Amino acid sequence: MTITIKDIANAAKVSTATVSRVLNGAGGYNEETKIKILQIAKELGYRRNEMARSLVKKSSNLIGIIMPSVSTIFYADIVNGMEKVAQAHGFSVILSHAGEKGNRLIDCLKMLEERKVDGLVIVSIPLKEEQIQAIESLSIPYVLLSTDTKNKRIPFIKVDDYEASYAATKYLIDHGHQKIGLAGVDFSDRVAGIARMEGYKRALCDHEISFSANYIKAGDYSFSAGKEALYAFHAEKTDITAVFCVSDEVALGIISAAFELGIQIPNDLSVMGYDNTRVAEMAVPPLTTIEQPFQAMGEKGCLKIIEAIQQKITVKTEMLPFAIVERASVSKRDY
């Protein structure tokens, strides 16, 4: 079990801010409080954060990036955006992978602590409270990219997944489709999965189109999830004319399975993607999709961290715009 400053604060009956000031020698407390907090920290086995103390005196010009250990293509654009801005401002980045669901995040934090990074960017990892506390104990600027939390004090940069999914579904409806499937969605993903599903459902409801649970196929945003979804639709003889995919990789899986099943895209089935990764325009046919500005997201995230480091300002949340990129995977259907 990781001991956090919150555990010490609870035991000492003081605020976490007071504990942080004592542990980092920042002042603003009496000697009795200092002795009490240090004694409790020792008894609980708290590991003093030497990195945070050193940052008061010296900057390493390093920014840590933590992301899941998955093969999703869009991460490259985010990292490229960060590296571009970092290099322009005399910083370097360190990349670490926190496992498929971010389960190794604490280990990544310890590694970055040892490297004495000045700031931190966390990509597409929904955080638990104990992880948030561990991040905050570093006492360095940080921001989340392409994710958020229920905790309003945590800064993030992302697209509104609900609105983007609503727009994608409406696009298909405007093209004459009423029997629209949803493929590849992770029901346990509070940040992106649920938001994209709810945006899809809301668009159907607003256009008085009945919702069917059979039209939704779960997955993990992957190519294989797309293939499995279309084979399931086919086996169940689902009468969908279009499918909204929660990632471009899912859409490519749908297109691949369609080729194997003799289903023509878009004549028999229209396919809408999400992300506008580099493979979207390489697909056959080229994929109509929702564009997330991943490189801009990386650039903004890195710039906000550098400004926070250099100007001692607070990192603020920012929502970025999405766009529909029209190609050739969606056809107009007349009823």
Rank of each mutant, 00 (worst) to 15 (best):
S165W: 03
I173N: 02
E260H: 09
S256D: 15
K84D: 08
L95V: 14
R153W: 00
V121G: 00
K152V: 10
A12W: 06
I216H: 02
Y200S: 07
S247F: 05
R48L: 15
S59I: 06
I65L: 15
S188F: 07
K84H: 12
H89W: 13
N10Q: 14
A9Y: 09
E198Q: 13
Y75L: 00
T241C: 11
F244H: 12
G102E: 10
V246K: 01
V19N: 13
S224Q: 14
V315G: 04
Y46Q: 03
Y46H: 09
D220A: 11
P286F: 01
S210A: 15
A26V: 14
L172C: 09
L55Q: 10
Y231E: 12
G193Y: 01
T169L: 05
Y142V: 07
S210W: 13
N49V: 08
D161G: 08
V79I: 12
D174N: 15
E299R: 01
T72N: 13
I125V: 13
R115G: 08
I122P: 03
Q310V: 15
V14R: 09
D161S: 12
M111I: 14
E129T: 14
I35R: 15
T149W: 01
S331D: 06
F259Y: 11
D160T: 02
G199K: 06
A232W: 07
H234Q: 10
I73S: 02
K110G: 08
I309D: 04
L144Y: 02
E228D: 14
K6M: 11
I306N: 09
V121F: 04
C108W: 07
F211I: 13
E299Y: 08
C108M: 06
L105V: 07
S54L: 14
V22S: 13
I66H: 01
K36P: 11
L38D: 10
D161P: 00
T169Q: 05
K332Y: 09
G28P: 10
H175N: 12
T238M: 07
P321H: 01
N276E: 05
D77P: 00
M51G: 15
R53I: 12
